[in-house]
Amino acid sequence: MSIIEFNKVTKSFNHHKVLNEASFTVPQGSVFGFLGNNGEGKSTTVRLMLGLLKPSGGEIRLFNRSASTVLPRCLNNIGCIVDAPALYQHLTASEYLSLSQRIKNIPKNDIDRVLNIVEMLPSKNGVIAQFSLGMKQRLAIANALLGAPDLLVLDEPTNGLDPQGMLDIRELLRRLPEKTGCTVFVSSHLLNEVERMVSHVAIINRGEIVLQDTLRNLVKAEGKLTVSCLETSNALALLSAANFQCSSNVSGELIVSDITQTQCTQVHHILSKHHIDFWQSNFDQLSLEETFMKICSKQENVSSLIKKRVA
């Protein structure tokens, strides 16, 4: 079952399309990473999801029902952080959390529970204005966790956190689905950070969803093969002729890029067939960051090609 579903959702501001027919689904119980550079439409997507903005076209479904019918009621079951956390700086941490607790009709003792999770219980009666950036972010996360919602929507949740704080929050979010059964939607541009906690990924570029898959499939799909052989130049010529993207590095090793694991066997077969001996062959999967950069640059190339053709 999908918890969030975007079907060809478009959002325009003054005829400028910020989101262009975006479609993706967030499976229940997943930690879903929504990735993109700054200004690509991540926060707009989050705002549309929560009903802060209304779509110009398409349909958004939450909990398998049309968002227009379930919002804002279903926000009772959604914990969120949108952009920089909105904190009433003159209130204490517990007073701030009591705002959500009262509106959502959550038992009062849940405030202590969530403050304990983010290790803010000792600062319960501290005024927010005197908190550090990291403490404010933790408090915003505590507010999102209040009432153990079924869906967490977090826009850049680790912003402002120190390395230990990042690690704690990452571990917390990663384990939440198995612990509580909740679904976590994380929008971020910190790819290394996201890679360590998500199970599913969607990439947004220029307002379009360019890819959606499980993290496993995405990073498994392509990689780089490094082969140590004697006749590198011959091997280069042979593999180039077979349409592989090849090069050699300073150590004289053969590098075959943009290659899948099944294609590695093909490479080995070609080399053996032409009696080129090799003594080492390593396949390195692309990291999420490398995959992201590759996808985005591919799209840039396609866009510039289209522009050139139109011109």
Binding site: L50, G51, L52, P72, R73, C74, L75, N76, I78, C80, V82, D83, A84, A86, L87, Y88, Q89, L99, S100, I103, K104
Partner: peptide, 18 residues
């Protein structure tokens, strides 16, 4: 002004209220 000052509109808009 409290809402304008602290991005409170955004906070309130994410609550289950109209």
């Amino acid at each position: 002004g409290i809402e304008h000052k602290h991005n409170g509109w955004r906070f309130m808009a994410t609550m289950p209220i109209q």
